[in-house]
Deep mutational scan, measured.
Amino acid sequence: LKGVVVAGGVLAGAVAVASFFLRNKRR
């Protein structure tokens, strides 16, 4: 169960970083 929580956190972080980079590329 702990691994699932960690994986979810990593996935959420990756999505946040990806969206951040996409926003920067638009400018």
Rank of each mutant, 00 (worst) to 15 (best):
L1N: 06
L1P: 04
L1F: 03
L1M: 00
L1K: 09
K2R: 09
K2E: 01
K2F: 06
K2V: 09
K2G: 04
G3H: 11
G3N: 14
G3K: 15
G3I: 10
G3E: 00
G3V: 10
G3S: 02
V4T: 15
V4N: 13
V4K: 09
V4C: 05
V4S: 15
V4P: 07
V4L: 13
V5T: 10
V5I: 12
V5S: 01
V5Y: 00
V6M: 15
V6G: 06
V6D: 13
V6R: 14
V6S: 13
V6Q: 03
A7L: 08
A7E: 09
A7I: 09
A7F: 07
A7S: 10
A7N: 12
A7C: 07
G8A: 11
G8R: 14
G8E: 13
G8F: 15
G8D: 11
G9A: 08
G9H: 00
G9Y: 03
G9V: 11
G9M: 09
V10F: 15
V10P: 09
V10Q: 05
V10S: 00
V10G: 03
V10W: 02
V10D: 02
V10E: 02
L11D: 00
L11I: 01
L11C: 12
L11F: 10
L11P: 01
L11N: 03
L11Q: 04
A12H: 06
A12T: 09
A12K: 15
A12P: 08
A12G: 01
A12R: 12
G13W: 12
G13I: 05
G13R: 14
G13V: 05
G13A: 05
G13H: 15
G13P: 07
G13L: 08
A14Y: 04
A14W: 08
A14E: 02
A14Q: 13
A14T: 06
A14H: 13
A14V: 09
A14I: 11
A14L: 06
V15S: 06
V15Y: 11
V15G: 02
V15H: 12
V15W: 05
V15A: 12
A16K: 13
A16I: 13
A16C: 04
A16P: 01
V17Q: 05
V17W: 11
V17G: 02
V17H: 04
V17A: 14
A18Q: 09
A18S: 05
A18Y: 04
A18L: 08
A18G: 02
A18N: 03
A18I: 12
A18T: 14
S19G: 12
S19P: 01
S19W: 09
S19H: 15
S19N: 12
S19V: 13
F20E: 11
F20H: 12
F20G: 08
F20D: 04
F20I: 10
F21Q: 07
F21V: 13
F21G: 03
F21S: 03
F21Y: 12
F21D: 00
F21R: 13
L22A: 10
L22I: 13
L22V: 01
L22W: 01
R23P: 01
R23I: 02
R23Q: 03
R23E: 04
R23K: 03
R23H: 10
N24V: 07
N24G: 10
N24M: 14
N24Q: 10
N24P: 05
N24S: 09
K25N: 04
K25D: 02
K25Q: 06
K25V: 05
K25L: 06
K25I: 03
R26K: 06
R26Q: 01
R26H: 10
R26D: 04
R26C: 05
R26V: 11
R26S: 04
R26W: 09
R26M: 05
R27S: 07
R27G: 09
R27K: 15
R27L: 04
R27H: 05
